[in-house]
Design a protein around this nucleic acid. Structure first.
Lengths: 205, 205, 205, 205
DNA sequence: AATGAATGAGAGTTCATTCAT
DNA sequence: AATGAATGAACTCTCATTCAT
């Protein structure tokens, strides 16, 4: 890459970072281009050399946030689908958990962007939901694979998958917020046991 | 009530309804007072005779949305706490389910307001979260009561309560959106079974 | 006066008092009718039963403020003009000083209205200056009478009168403001000595 | 200075001039940004590229008005304080008079801004009074220097200084208004004689 | 006589975007 | 490539005054 391209890439990176910081603080709607360029130290017009408009910047931020998840989920889903034995699958589930945890850790700082905008009306929400559909559809696929192998009960697969995603999201959000009601260390394993074993005190006959 | 008061109440109602419609479509930030008054057919200044500012209108809409939930949850929580036997409790849980379902049905049209703004930054999100804390704290209370009676396993109560709320929210949101992946009729009972019995195909020894 | 007239007069008084208080605090322009009626505890429309508009209220306040001055000055001017001897005049000057001091004391609380608006552009200033012209013209008349009697040097009478009025106003304003630089007790006599000894006709050796 | 900077400076100047004209006519409160930009022939938003808000424009106008006075007064005060002999001082007083007269002449068109707002409540008055305090404090300093040299009688220095400033202001205001009662040419020398002969230390026989 | 709901023009200010330099 | 001045519509909110009740 030439020096010029490097500079261009660095500046694009700087705009993205400033944009993310600002939008995490104030949300997409209330974040002004002015604030972003002031943070980066460039002129107003320069912004439009790197992004056609404000929503394109947001779009890029979302891609950086969601793409790793979608990629991780899809590759794990493929691996699970190709697994020959239950033992293999159990290993793959463990790997998936670790893999997703790593992605979460890496994207942690940007994650609030998802929570803030995923259900919002208007441009920002629509952009989020395009990614979200992919995440949830993959979750459904994984669940249906497990059902077809008899690993989990035959509930309505979409309902269960969405429920699990919803529960996971809520705990994640509480964790990101530093919710004092939550014991962050236990939350993930609680969630796993909760879904796997149910809430009843002892297994029924 | 005099004719004056009736008219005033009706107009206030009209503003609230127009405001809700507009905010459901465009969100709090993007909804202008101008649009609301045009919908109602009143002058711009008239709006401010009924609400001190835009956020006060939104606040009222949130109260109309959340207060029935909070009220229902709290009264059921009290009843559950006062229950003498497990049989009484089971009846009360059933009643709570029915009660909440009725509230959901009644507030159905306004519910998206919650989903759109609950995690938003800024004024609108903050106002939502004041109500949400009440909802979730009551959910935790109910769960802890069940734990203390040995009805449910001793997980971290806040984590489990938030997980249940999160799962319920996600299914509700899918239902409100008319999500084609979801079988709406079954969703609620699936959710109940999911949590109560867990996801494993047969109960373990 | 019938009971009805009494009530009406009392309410008019209340509006005037609330208006004065408000305008002393915020000035004519920034004082809203809304604030006044809220203070009095009457309806917006009622205000317009007592005064045709906001400027009429201000006008009345100015009359209550300036009329006593104009009346006192004019009657003292007449008495001075009719005085036969210098001794009589000296007594009348003393009486005038005392009289004006009493008026100042009585109108003290309202006096800032003059200082705030006397030179303002727009309605409020114009209304003030109509009264001020009367005050200053009378001051000029008194000075010219003193000149014609040889009591004071023959300066340009208007210039001297305006200068005296200006100096008196400045000290009065400082006094009303509680200006810490000023020794309020001495100010009046300082002013008198300053001008009296300065404008004496007999020159120095 | 580049072409860009020149144009920007010229436009800033145009806004200041239009703002001054408008505020001289209607006062700070009643002057709208809309009117100013219409006069200049620019868009509403452009105004805010040059001034953060309306009060900043007013502030700048005040600085252009008062700063020359404060500067002139303070430098003359310093010179007077450093004067060795009475003769030197007399020359310096003369120079000060001429200097102030020149400043008056230069700022003549803007001077009404002072008279209109100096005693007004609210933002505009407060901004004026910050400057005025400097003017008056310097006047007091000059007077106290003269007192310490035995040039003038030992009155309360603040009272006398404020009286002189007040008188000068009143005559100036009459002059600016084109007051027909006033002989403008004589006014200044009348004022000087009035005070000078009035505050001489040596008493009369 | 008194009310207070209604008006609608107008206030100051912000903002995404464009374009001449 | 980069600038930053310019735009003008849109925003929320205020206000003196009117008039049906």
């Amino acid at each position: 890459m030439g020096l010029r391209e490097q500079k261009k890439a660095a500046r694009r990176r700087a705009i993205l970072d400033a944009g993310r910081t600002a939008m995490l603080e104030e949300g997409y709607e209330r974040t002004s281009v002015e604030r972003i360029v002031a943070q980066v130290g460039i002129a107003r017009g320069t912004f439009y050399l790197y992004f056609p408009d404000k929503s394109a910047l947001f779009s890029t931020l979302l891609e950086e946030l969601y793409a790793p998840f979608v990629h991780a989920l899809k590759s794990h889903a493929n691996a699970l689908a190709a697994a020959a034995t239950t033992q293999q699958q159990q290993l793959l589930y463990l790997q998936m958990s670790l893999g997703l945890a790593q992605v979460l850790e890496r994207t942690r700082a940007t994650l609030p962007l998802h929570f803030q905008h995923a259900r919002a009306p208007g441009t920002s929400g629509t952009l989020c939901r395009e990614w979200l559909t992919q995440v949830e559809d993959t979750a459904i696929t994984i669940l249906e694979d497990a059902q077809s192998r008899g690993l989990v009960r035959h509930h309505d697969s979409a309902a269960v998958a969405l429920a699990i995603v919803g529960a996971a999201e809520r705990l994640l959000w509480a964790w990101l917020q530093g919710d004092p009601r939550l014991n962050a260390e236990q939350a993930a394993s609680e969630l796993a046991r909760l879904f796997f074993e149910g809430i009843r005190p002892q297994a029924l006959p």
